[in-house]
Deep mutational scan, measured.
Amino acid sequence: SAVVMEEGSPGEVPVLVEPPGLEDVEAALGMDRRTDAYSRSSSVSSQEEKSLHAEELVGRGIPIERVVSSEGGRPSVDLSFQPSQPLSKSSSSPELQTLQDILGDPGDKADVGRLSPEVKARSQSGTLDGESAAWSASGEDSRGQPEGPLPSSSPRSPSGLRPRGYTISDSAPSRRGKRVERDALKSRATASNAEKVPGINPSFVFLQLYHSPFFGDESNKPILLPNESQSFERSVQLLDQIPSYDTHKIAVLYVGEGQSNSELAILSNEHGSYRYTEFLTGLGRLIELKDCQPDKVYLGGLDVCGEDGQFTYCWHDDIMQAVFHIATLMPTKDVDKHRCDKKRHLGNDFVSIVYNDSGEDFKLGTIKGQFNFVHVIVTPLDYECNLVSLQCRKDMEGLVDTSVAKIVSDRNLPFVARQMALHANMASQVHHSRSNPTDIYPSKWIARLRHIKRLRQRICEEAAYSNPSLPLVHPPSHSKAPAQTPAEPTPGYEVGQRKRLISSVEDFTEFV
């Protein structure tokens, strides 16, 4: 048969007729292969192709491409040299491709048809291009793949890379869960390890502090508590009631339409708007009261037996805890006409967050109470924005700035309102402590230090009264110190430094 060459192609190359033996071998191979691939376009007849790359030819070592076609129900084999250009295909004639002069020997084609199974398996396991790669995943090629499931790999992101949580363990979102698992493993320790309690022994800490320079003076030496005195035992138990972190309780009120001037209507609300609910979820963490331990979680007086509701929101960081007394989460009882059960919590909070959804101005004093010092007013606006402002009593104007209003988005509203309420509550605590000038409020841990110092002074006084020969370590507060001759004046800087060093040991009130 003659071949018409394309323009620009090399000279004529004689194409030899395939021997009958080659056709029989390739026909047997075509019957084993699956003929249901995917359909081509209507211009080209339905056909199945599979590209198999052999590394070497037997005796020649030339890479070839073998295409199996099922045109007219008769499979045909096409061998081509890759750099050459194939002729145009037609549905009426068999596929013809040019070969190099080196394939002119018909014996070479017979060798190609009689490829060993080793070469076929190696060509099938190679990388296939384009559409033949999808075909190689079918059941027909499963014989050339190794048996057994593939090893499982770690989760992959859409980009093909490992997620960040699997790369950096410290930033993994499941870090707290692993800590819980470690605690569970520790709890399952053997009885021999049960006595080993991690941490620092208080006796060891005391020993280090006792021999430090801070205890060089007799006034700073630790003293032993009497065991037989019940009054001192009660004082030590009272110390446990003062937490070592700051605590805040903040009221949250929802004002519906037409309720801006009605205290009873505001306290009777059992739910609010959708934006109000989203605002609550951002204030803190939802907790169930019956599962809380009052000595570990500050509840601000809420009952854990269901008297004040089942849930509330709280927030904490390293040095403070805040609980929100939310009116809509507290039960509304029919027998309580004046809502006294709610007001006994909300009316005693220094700061209230008022979500004013009424469309009218909310005035300070609508919720009557002796300790309502500051109101954080949240007014929802259009386009997911809110107006946040402050209202306070006249005696609080020096501590709280009420002249600045803020426009905040719904997303950042819980954070801004919480921070403003916490700052206002700190100012309210300082303002409330002014009624007792001898006990200015600095912080909870300073209050613990003052309680310890008062307890020490009482013990020293009782020891001096029981044994008059012992001198008083600290003179009583009601006694007057003996007159001392004025010492020589020293520079102001040295006096300030000495006073600062003494105050650092005794108390921190002056620095606050």
Rank of each mutant, 00 (worst) to 15 (best):
C314R: 09
L501I: 09
D410M: 00
P471Y: 07
V335W: 12
G496C: 14
G359F: 04
L283P: 00
D349Q: 05
H345V: 11
M426C: 03
S403V: 04
S479W: 11
Y254D: 01
Q370P: 15
R344W: 09
K363T: 11
A251P: 02
A424C: 13
F415R: 02
T247S: 06
C392P: 03
K343R: 15
K290W: 04
H338V: 11
E384N: 09
L264T: 15
L286V: 10
E384P: 02
K444I: 10
P380F: 00
Q370C: 15
D317R: 01
M396S: 02
A427V: 07
S409E: 03
L302Y: 14
T328E: 03
P468Q: 11
D336S: 12
N261R: 12
S477N: 12
D295R: 07
P437F: 05
Y274N: 06
K221T: 15
Y383K: 03
L422N: 00
V495M: 12
N425T: 14
I353W: 00
E233Q: 14
A424T: 04
I367H: 03
W315G: 04
E270Q: 06
W445G: 10
G359P: 02
L399Y: 15
S268C: 07
S477C: 11
Q429A: 10
N386L: 01
E488S: 10
K394T: 13
V323L: 12
G365W: 04
L501Y: 09
G284T: 06
G284N: 04
S352Q: 05
V351N: 00
A424R: 00
F350Q: 03
P442F: 05
N220S: 15
P486V: 13
L302R: 15
S268M: 07
H478L: 10
S389Y: 08
V304E: 09
L264D: 14
E494D: 11
A481C: 13
L413D: 00
D240N: 07
M426P: 00
A265P: 03
E288M: 08
I407L: 08
F508C: 14
F371N: 15
I242A: 05
Y383I: 03
K499D: 14
M330W: 04
V252S: 00
R454M: 13
E307W: 06
Q293W: 07
G496P: 15
Q321D: 10
I446R: 13
R418G: 08
D303G: 10
R285V: 09
S435L: 12
F415M: 05
E488G: 14
H478A: 15
V297W: 14
P476A: 12
F350T: 03
W445I: 05
T379H: 04
V473C: 11
N261L: 05
N356M: 00
Y245V: 09
K480V: 13
I367W: 06
S231K: 07
S428D: 00
Y313W: 05
H474S: 15
I319A: 06
E233T: 09
G347P: 04
L390I: 06
D217Q: 11
G272P: 03
H316E: 15
L413M: 05
F279I: 00
D217M: 15
T277N: 14
E270N: 07
L280S: 02
P482H: 10
Y441V: 14
E228N: 08
K480Y: 13
D410P: 00
F324I: 02
G496H: 08
L302V: 14
P437M: 05
R411F: 06
E360Q: 10
L225R: 10
V252F: 00
Q419Y: 02
D295Y: 04
P491F: 11
I459P: 11
S477H: 12
S352K: 05
K343A: 13
H474W: 07
P489F: 11
L283G: 01
I502F: 13
D401R: 03
L286P: 12
Q391A: 14
T490Y: 08
K394I: 10
V400E: 04
I250E: 01
K499G: 12
G347R: 15
F350V: 02
H345G: 05
Q457L: 07
S504G: 13
Q484W: 10
W445F: 05
R448S: 12
Q484E: 14
